[in-house]
């Protein structure tokens, strides 16, 4: 389990990174390395050139912008978990990060790496989907933005083109009176989720003004449960309503069966977690309204 040979280049700017990626037809970016290096040690990935972006200081910031937070691609899981800005605006991030692997891995793993790695059961792709993130991408043709629904194409597959670099995720603030929650079911602490669910519920005068429900581990990419969301919006909050929406969350899902869970079991878990998470989000929304 030793990686195959490769060349290595540590870059210090986004431009340099983009240029380096173009220099080789088989270049790979390394960020935290927490997904890439295991695959290289297994020799499942054998890049010719490894472009290390860890020294691009500009990518490590969490900044407030008008209308939202910008989280640099190199922000480590632990930083997104502990930053005052995320705790203030998106406490759901810390709630989700708690489920990502373990301390030492959270110390190094990055948001950008998680998003580009695009594991359908991973927390960051789910959060990006839940929080309507806009992903900032730099490439040979300059900068572009992508939304999660277009960015995540399949398990470990994204719309990132050759020579492109993910630089940040922009998270628009939640509407006033919103609460968010995350939960997942995994066999052991820190394992990738069998099913993960995130919810945002925004209340106005006791009526659900906005509802989002995102699901992980049940498709090729993280998904939004649109039927459930639609069912909630415009209706007064009640336990019954949330329970109904939770059962609608399975609509259209065709989860895979793998070693640890069958498609049926995943479908069984979705409404349970959806109900719990919607309930928590709704309670937090009520708290936010008080």
């Amino acid at each position: 389990m030793k990686p195959a040979p490769f060349d290595y280049l540590a870059v210090t700017s986004i431009d340099e990174a983009v240029r380096a990626l173009q220099a080789s037809c088989d270049a790979k970016i390394i960020a935290g390395g927490q997904s890439l290096v295991p695959m290289m040690n297994f020799r499942l990935v054998q890049p010719e050139l490894l472009v290390d972006i860890n020294r691009i200081a500009a990518l490590s910031q969490i900044t407030e912008t008008t209308g939202g937070l910008t989280i640099g691609a190199l922000v480590r899981h632990v930083e997104s978990q502990k930053s005052q800005l995320t705790i203030r605006h998106f406490p759901v991030i810390a709630e989700a990060m708690h489920h990502v692997a373990h301390v030492a891995i959270r110390n190094r793993g990055t948001i950008g790496g998680s998003l580009v790695h695009a594991d359908p059961a991973a927390e960051w792709p789910l959060l990006a989907t839940l929080l309507d993130a806009e992903l900032e991408i730099h490439g040979p043709d300059g900068e572009r933005r992508a939304i999660p629904a277009e960015f995540f194409l399949g398990p470990l597959v994204t719309d990132l083109q050759e020579g492109e670099l993910l630089t940040a995720a922009h998270l628009p603030y939640l509407p006033a009176g919103a609460g968010a929650a995350f939960d997942e079911f995994a066999q052991r602490a820190g394992d990738f989720a069998i099913v993960s669910v995130g919810a945002v519920v925004a209340l106005r005068d006791g009526v659900i003004a906005e509802a989002r429900l995102a699901l992980g581990g049940v498709g090729d990419t993280p998904l939004r449960a649109q039927a459930a969301e639609t069912h909630l919006v415009g209706k007064p909050l009640s336990d019954g309503l949330l329970a109904q929406a939770a059962t609608l969350a399975v609509e259209g899902l065709e989860p895979n069966t793998d070693l640890h869970a069958s498609s049926e079991y995943r479908l069984h878990l979705v409404p349970i977690l959806a109900r719990r998470v919607l309930a928590t989000a709704a309670r937090r929304a009520r708290g936010a309204c008080e």
Partner: peptide, 25 residues
């Protein structure tokens, strides 16, 4: 492959898996 933690060291003051980093880094 990052699971067992036996290789845990501290890099710049925080814990890290030494099997998931290259020496050049």
């Amino acid at each position: 492959h990052g699971i067992c933690g036996a290789c845990t060291v501290r890099v710049n003051g925080v814990s890290a898996r030494s099997c998931l980093m290259f020496a050049v880094q």
